[in-house]
Design a protein around this nucleic acid. Structure first.
Length: 888
RNA sequence: GGGCGUUUAGCUCAGCUGGGAGAGCGCUACCCUUACAAGGUAGAUGUCGGGGGUUCGAACCCCUCAACGCCCACCA
């Protein structure tokens, strides 16, 4: 890093430095866990993105919040680990490859053997799988890449098998004929959580059912007439006087003329439909329950692709939606369709496929979660795991307090194959190892269950398996005991059910511990109008575009500034542009001190020799340090970013640098050196404070500011609050100085004095400390307000005649003018100010005179009111006095 | 149907346990002032969704109404 020869450009170019520093950090092994002075570990497992994935704005937010925290804790001396991974994402990956193969070869997966097709998916994964990881690198993620784990790697596979087999042997995993959500497109069962309910416009069909041996008929209401082929009963409410005499008789299903019993069941709603319900246990969740209660037979009328099977008679082969219309038409022709009216009703759709889900009975594997879910609830109730923000625990509870057994088998090829084996003598057993013979009958003719496990089954074990569990050697190598339980999980609220709940259950089950102590739920990134980003709307924001346009630091800072306890971030690229300008401001602040780097040291040797402004900036820096530390600890990235933003912009750049110009241009070497030291000291702290949020520019500038023997910024200590740097009097005086300077500028602007032209200024105040302070700041008034001569005096002194003036609570400001003054305008301005001040005054005076207020309000509030009454009273007095003068 | 959330400046949002309405972007005027025009200085803009209540005092607490959004449940 050459400090003195390079000419620095006026704008910062992110692209030039980002790849350079990432490589330097990675090659220098700065991302690897190291024991530090805090003597504690801090671990975040990155939610593994899908191998099919491309980085989207949500991932960028994940990374920003996780990496900022990791960098923060690393600098604070924690042994940090940010652990990366990739998810095989069963359904979506298989679909992507199926689609690709179909496009390229016009073949479906069924044209290949399972082995051949899975090989194709692996090839695809090898080619594209790492893409998203490189995008994560571009975001600056300080992961230890040696920990990179894929959900189908050997260790996660061991974990999956171990959990499955243990639970199988405890009978907590069982196989059952059960009504599941069948996705006819994927031709697989999917879990409850993978079904989305959407309102769909359908019809209510009223169908006439004959009753055997009677002239009476029943009018049954349904939205799905095509399922009547699967009816095995008709149900009425036993308390329904209209129909209860029919219970026990036999109804005849139209079209197929099957005889079924008429049963009484409380589930039937008297109000809904006609009060008569056709019972189709094979294709309706409620009917399935009714069927169990009444021991009704189950008839499956659908093929795996959702078309009617042979039970559909002449309609066999039709898709259920088509069959619905055809069947209803046929019923109409036969005079059996009594009514048909439009009806909006919710229909489950496959989350991945988007097609309507068919409830269907089939043999599937389930996990009994009743015990695990109770433990998972308790762990949050008793504080072992805390949600930030806290409200999200309700979402978590609502799912876990009312759990349904988890259907874990999927009829796919891509995933962890279920470790259950069968022999030709119908024995069944589970095994963690490959098997060649049946343990019961020793038959060599064995085969494994063809189904694979739900993707979330391996995801649920992720915090353990990435740290080596259950392999003792891997656990040792990966320091399981150091990093488990991990510190915090950071993710979006959309996967609290899918993932957070399952990790909690599976970790409590296998480790008897929570998998992480905190869960920070960050917002969902939306477009600037608050709409979800989606392909169909075309409103997605590509992180890569943002990085290219504004730089990674600006993008990260924007995301951090938007992340607190909110649930949406409406991301407007203009905002990123705003923060890009801020990053550039930091760059230029450095350009300002750059020529003076050799003049002062980086440490402040003698605190007692500092001047007012130096003490002031250190006090402000100290306050900022405190806010940043506190905010990062509780995931308030928004508060942290706004604290450093306003310190850098409004304190360091706008005032401290401006106040330093005359010193640096002066010739008092000692004062100059001291000021440079403070500038440098504060700037080094700024870089350290900002580094977790904006790693690249800060590391780049640090290279210029660091001492020869100092390490990279990523490895420096994070600044801490220091009581020795509290200087309240200097802060108070500086605030008054700023007020006066602003007021002079305001006066100048009000009469259009050119920025270059100098003016004389007279200040009047009764505060003797201030008089002294203002006099010491003569040169600063000259610089910052273009003042020529300044006089400061007591309020007893006479005021200049021809002048414009402002009144502050502590000081009167006069700018005498030689030319013609628009008296009218001055008077009107003063009168406006007087009205405003009087209104303010009245407010406080009323409070002061209110006995109840004086009795009840806390002392500091009372004190403030009294001060305001006094100061505003003085201000009114001043304005009135001066108005008299102007008017005379 | 059950639950949660949101409503503050033109836009996107902050505002911690109640005590003087804020930021960024945008806008207006004037400035190429020797770190920065991705800049500087000054400035305008708000019945804090409506109504009621508690309180000495409400953007903040309670009730109520309205609009919008999300989650869960439910194919009669």
């Amino acid at each position: 890093m050459t400090t003195n020869t390079t000419e620095l450009p006026t704008t910062y170019s992110p692209a030039d430095v980002e790849t350079k520093w990432y490589k330097t950090w990675e090659d220098g092994k700065y991302f690897k866990p190291k024991k530090g002075k805090a003597n504690k570990s801090f671990c975040i497992i990155v939610p593994p993105p899908n191998v099919t994935g491309k980085l989207h704005a949500g991932h960028a937010l994940d990374i920003t919040t996780q990496d900022s925290l990791i960098r923060f804790k690393r600098m604070k001396g924690f042994e940090t680990l940010l652990l990366p991974g990739l998810d095989h994402a069963g359904i979506s990956t298989q679909s992507v490859v199926e689609k690709m193969v179909f496009e390229q070869e016009k073949k479906t997966r069924r044209d290949f053997s399972r082995e051949e097709f899975v090989k194709k998916i692996w090839a695809w994964k090898e080619e594209y799988g790492n893409h998203i990881l490189n995008q994560q690198r571009a975001m600056g993620t300080s992961c230890d890449w040696d920990y990179l784990t894929f959900t189908l790697d050997p260790i996660p596979n061991k974990a999956v098998k171990k959990f499955f087999v243990d639970m199988y042997n405890q009978k907590m995993i069982y196989q059952s004929d059960y009504i599941v959500n069948w996705d006819p497109m994927l031709q697989s069962a999917v879990s409850e959580a993978e079904v989305e309910h959407k309102d769909v416009q359908g019809n209510f069909f009223h169908i006439k059912y004959a009753i055997k041996g009677s002239d009476e008929t029943l009018e049954v209401a349904t939205t799905r007439p095509e399922t009547l082929f699967g009816d095995t009963a008709v149900a009425v409410n036993p308390n329904d006087d209209r129909f209860k005499h029919l219970i026990g008789k036999t109804a005849i299903i139209p079209l197929c003329n099957r005889e079924v019993p008429i049963i009484g069941d409380e589930h039937v709603d008297l109000e809904k439909g006609t009060g008569c319900l056709k019972v189709t246990p094979g294709h309706d969740f409620n009917d399935f329950e009714i069927g169990k209660r009444h021991k009704l037979p189950i008839i499956n009328i659908l093929n795996k692709d959702g078309t009617l099977n042979e039970y559909g008679l002449e309609f066999a082969g039709l898709a259920s939606k088509v069959a619905r219309n055809v069947v209803s038409k046929k019923l109409d022709e036969l005079g059996l369709l009594l009514d048909k009216k439009p009806h909006m009703h919710p229909v489950g759709h496959g989350e991945r496929s988007g097609v309507p889900i068919e409830p269907m009975v089939s043999k599937q594997w389930f996990v009994n979660v009743s015990d695990m879910s109770k433990r998972a609830v308790a762990a949050v109730e008793n504080g072992d795991m805390k949600f930030y923000p806290k409200e999200w625990e309700n979402t978590y509870y609502s799912w876990l307090r009312n759990p349904k057994d988890w259907c874990i088998s999927r009829q796919l090829w891509w995933g962890h194959q279920i470790p259950v084996f069968y022999c030709d003598n119908n024995h069944q057993w589970a095994s963690e190892h490959d098997v060649t013979e049946c343990p019961t009958c020793k038959s060599k003719n064995v085969h494994q269950d063809p189904d694979v496990l739900d993707t979330w089954f391996s995801s649920g074990l992720w915090p353990m398996s990435t740290l080596g569990w259950p392999d003792p050697k891997a656990m040792e190598e990966k320091k399981f005991s150091t990093f488990f339980p991990t510190t915090v999980l950071i993710t979006g609220y959309d996967i609290i059910f899918f993932w957070v709940a399952r990790m909690m259950m599976m970790s409590l089950q296998t480790q008897n511990q929570v998998p992480f102590k905190d869960t920070y739920i960050h917002a969902i990134v939306r477009d600037k109008l608050g709409r979800k980003m989606s392909k169909s709307l075309g409103n997605g924001i590509d992180p890569f575009d943002m990085i290219a346009q504004y730089g990674t630091d600006a993008f990260r800072f924007t995301l951090a500034a938007g992340s607190g306890y909110n649930r949406n971030i409406n991301l407007d690229p203009d905002r990123i542009g705003g923060f890009r300008n801020f990053i550039n401001k930091v760059w230029n602040a450095f350009r300002f001190i750059y020529p003076h780097l050799q003049t002062g040291s980086a440490q402040i040797t003698d605190m007692s020799k500092l001047d007012h402004h130096e003490r002031w900036i250190l006090a402000e820096l100290n306050t900022t340090t405190k806010i940043m530390n506190e905010s990062m600890e509780i995931y308030r990235y928004d508060d942290a970013s706004s604290a450093i933003y306003s310190f850098v912009y409004d304190k360091y750049c706008s005032w401290f640098i401006e106040l330093s110009k005359n010193i640096l241009n002066g010739d008092d070497a000692a004062i100059k050196a001291r000021r440079v030291s403070v500038l440098k000291f504060a700037f080094r702290k700024i870089l350290a404070l900002m580094h977790p949020l904006t790693p690249f520019i800060t590391e780049e500038l640090w290279a210029h500011l660091k001492e020869a023997n100092e390490d990279l910024l990523i490895a420096q200590d994070y600044p801490e609050y220091d009581k020795a740097l509290e200087f309240t009097q200097d802060q108070d005086q500086m605030n008054k100085f700023v007020e006066v300077v602003t007021s002079i500028r305001n006066l100048r602007a009000s009469v259009n004095i050119k920025p270059k032209d100098e003016v004389n200024v007279e200040l009047f105040t009764d505060n003797q400390e201030l008089i002294k302070y203002f006099r010491e700041n003569l040169v600063n008034f000259q610089e910052l307000a273009r003042v020529k001569n300044l006089s400061v005096g007591n309020k007893e002194l006479n005021r200049p005649n021809k002048s414009i003036m402002n009144v502050l609570t502590h000081t009167e400001i006069f700018v005498p003018l030689d030319g013609v003054i628009d008296l009218k305008e001055q008077i009107s301005r003063l009168e406006k100010e007087l009205t405003k001040t009087k209104a303010d005054f009245a407010k406080y005076e009323a409070k002061m005179k209110n006995e109840n207020f004086m009795k009840n309000a806390p002392e500091n509030v009372r004190e403030e009111v009294l001060v305001n009454v006094r100061e505003l009273g003085e201000k009114i007095h001043s304005i009135e006095e001066n108005l008299v003068q102007f008017k005379s």
